[in-house]
């Protein structure tokens, strides 16, 4: 990393503190990127499709969450001011929104990508771009062109005590407390269950998997459902954490998540998590030590550098093209 420019003026002990603060923010943001990246990587692992529409499924999920919060207050008299109700409400959102995103993702796969399974790779890729445009337009008509404020429901109380020099709030904790268990559960699911095994088999060789009696279509559907659900969960957390939603957010976040997936080695689940964390850290440390306006460029410079030296990503194994 470039030498600390801004912190140079501050003494060393607080220099460390600042560094830790950036790292905390970076890891929290990174956990969010990772959650979206998982959806990219799982779909890619199975059908080798860069699903450009994934970020927009995520965007629609956060619009749904925003609409639900309003509707629950209006029609159910939900009191979003009371801690218990907030907890329960967020729990509800974390069920409904992922279900919606999973259903949306599966529908997209069935209607758009499935007929193209045998076509060369560019055809589904361009379709995915097309789906992304359509979903973005739906978001535009649904939420309007301007940024929308997402209610700030989670407390900003520090979990480290009010006097602590580091700031780590309940809100930050929420992100970690929801994303980490989801990632662990996903890993266990893919490693241990029958369906998870079928997914791995299909990713390795779909033809052989089919010959072994695996229903490849069902496995692909399940992968899209799972990826969509992860995006839905990420959408709820994103809304609660960043507090702004807009119809363009899917594109930007999708880009980062996709980068994270590639960085870690696309198709590789721990790789996507690692990639997300690296990008989160690169952004926050870049903002702190290089300059805010260079952060996005820095993410991509790191990406290019890593791919030049490790052409299959951080955790990807080097495979030769099959002949």
């Amino acid at each position: 990393m470039t030498p600390p420019l801004l912190v140079a003026a501050v003494d060393t002990s607080s220099g460390w503190q600042t560094f830790l603060q950036y790292a905390l923010i970076g890891l929290t943001n990174g956990a969010l990127f990772a959650l979206v990246a998982l959806g990219y990587t799982m779909v890619y692992g199975i059908i080798e499709l860069i699903n450009f529409a994934h970020g927009d499924v995520f965007m629609l999920g956060s619009f749904l969450a925003l609409a639900l919060i309003g509707a629950m207050a209006k029609y159910l008299g939900w009191n979003w001011g009371e801690p218990a109700m907030i907890g329960l409400g967020i729990g509800l959102l974390l069920v409904v929104v992922p279900l919606f995103c999973a259903a949306l993702n599966v529908t997209i796969d069935r209607v758009v990508y499935k007929p193209l399974r045998r076509a060369p790779k560019l055809a589904p890729l361009v379709s995915a771009i097309g789906v992304s445009f359509v979903l973005m337009n739906v978001g535009l008509l649904w939420g309007g062109a301007a940024d929308r404020h997402f209610p700030d429901l989670v407390s900003r109380q520090s979990v480290l005590g009010e006097t602590a020099a580091l700031s780590f709030t309940v809100k930050d904790l929420m992100v970690v407390a929801i994303t980490v268990p989801i990632m662990i559960a996903l890993t266990l699911f893919v490693k241990t269950t029958r369906l998870g095994k079928a997914m791995r088999a299909t990713a390795q060789d779909p033809l052989a998997a089919q010959l072994m009696g695996i229903n490849v279509d069902r496995v692909i559907g399940a992968t899209f459902a799972l990826g969509g659900a992860l995006a839905g969960a990420a959408a709820v957390i994103y809304g609660l954490y960043i507090n702004t939603v807009s119809y363009q957010m899917g594109f930007q976040n999708g880009l980062y998540a996709f980068t994270a997936a590639v960085l870690g080695g696309i198709g590789n689940i721990p790789g996507a998590v690692l990639g997300g964390l690296v990008i989160g850290l690169a952004r926050s440390l870049g903002s702190g030590y290089v300059g805010e306006r260079w952060t996005s460029a820095l993410v991509f410079v790191i990406l290019i550098a890593i791919l030049v030296f490790r052409p299959a990503g951080l955790l990807g194994s080097r495979t030769r093209d099959k002949v």
């Binding site: 600042t18 700031s167 702004t244 930007q252 976040n253 903002s287 952060t295 996005s296």
Partner: peptide, 11 residues
């Protein structure tokens, strides 16, 4: 086009 500015605010 960035989504959030939390590290900047920490600075």
């Amino acid at each position: 086009k960035a989504q959030e500015f939390k590290p900047l605010m920490a600075t």
